[in-house]
């Protein structure tokens, strides 16, 4: 009975065609034009006022960038660490914040708060907190007898320190997505499992984890893309340093842009776009294929 009705709906649209014009204009002006323009400018030597077509030279040059490989590796590491930690911490926090604890509503706001703060502000604050000798973190560690590391000045640690701050800032969003997923799981499943002899830990692994899979897919996808594009936090905290040890593709592109190589940095953006597509499209296809089974 539902079928013929829904087919009729599909054929006869609810709104007149011109309703979609405003959205189409905005999309065209703000998205399509810049995208194609940047594709074009990536093939030119471009100084804002004049551009000269030079073919793929920008791309050759971009791939010859001495620290590009490290930037690529850093970008992928950063994206994997942050999305992995956001999944794990977001789910655990969501489980905690959907259980019967005191101050639940208040704690939910606390967890979400960092999402609302400006990234640059967070970056500057944590740069101060992570100062090797005077930063609050190491001062606190010293009180319990631990010699805190040089969070942002040790080249093998800087990228990971920034990643931790990114997780701190972004985990609230993951938590909110997970909370929405968890409250949609009927309580009956947990009661049936309890009668089947399931401990709370077993219920988590056999019920909560598999049934929050749609939320997991959303969190992974969003935070992985966000991680690959990450720029502002890195720039605010390390500017890619020490040396080039925490450079990501986005920060490399920005440096080229700062140096006035507009065509080159535009080519870099095209490369970043392709990289994100190459990694994320198969990832979401994989995640959604498994999900479709339920």
């Amino acid at each position: 009975m539902a079928n013929p009705t829904s087919r009729a709906y599909a054929r006869r649209s609810t709104y007149p065609g011109w309703f979609f014009l405003p959205a189409a204009i905005i999309y065209g002006v703000l998205f399509l034009v810049p995208t194609f323009a940047s594709l074009y400018f990536s093939l030119t030597r471009w100084s804002l006022f004049s551009s000269e077509f030079i073919g793929l030279t920008n791309f050759y040059q971009f791939f010859e960038e001495p620290f590009l490989v490290q930037g690529l590796v850093n970008t992928v590491i950063f994206a994997m660490i942050t999305s992995g930690l956001k999944v794990v911490l977001g789910l655990l926090l969501a489980v905690l914040l959907t259980s019967r604890i005191a101050l639940r509503g208040y704690l939910r706001s606390v967890v979400f708060f960092p999402v609302l703060v400006s990234t640059v502000g967070v970056g500057i604050t944590f740069t101060v907190l992570m100062h090797p000798t005077q930063g609050a973190i190491n001062v606190a560690l010293e009180l319990v007898g631990i010699d805190g590391p040089h969070w942002l000045t040790n080249p093998s640690l800087a990228l990971y320190s920034v990643a931790l701050v990114d997780v701190w800032k972004g985990v609230g969003l993951a938590t909110v997505i997970y909370i929405a997923g968890l409250v949609a799981i009927p309580k009956d499943y947990y009661e049936a499992a309890r009668i089947d002899g399931s401990t709370p830990t077993q219920s988590f692994f056999y019920i909560t984890l598999p049934l929050s899979r749609p939320a997991t897919v959303t969190v992974i996808t969003l935070s992985f893309i966000g991680g690959l594009k990450t720029f502002d936090l890195i720039w605010a905290m390390t500017r890619g340093g020490p040396g080039f040890s925490s450079d990501t593709i986005a920060s490399i592109i920005y440096k080229q842009y700062q140096a006035g190589f507009y065509g080159l940095s535009t080519a870099g953006n095209v490369v970043l776009f392709v990289l994100i597509a190459l990694l994320v499209v198969p990832l979401t296809m994989y995640l959604n294929r498994r999900e479709g089974h339920e």
């Binding site: 009927p186 009956d188 499943y189 009661e191 049936a192 499992a193 309890r194 009668i195 089947d196 002899g197 399931s198 056999y206 019920i207 598999p210 049934l211 339920e294």
Partner: peptide, 27 residues
Amino acid sequence: PRDRGIAMVFQSYALYPHMTVYENFGF
């Protein structure tokens, strides 16, 4: 509940949606 020697059938059935019938039976 697991130590009371009881089993319960819920009004909503409460079948685990991600498990097959076989796995539901055997959980």
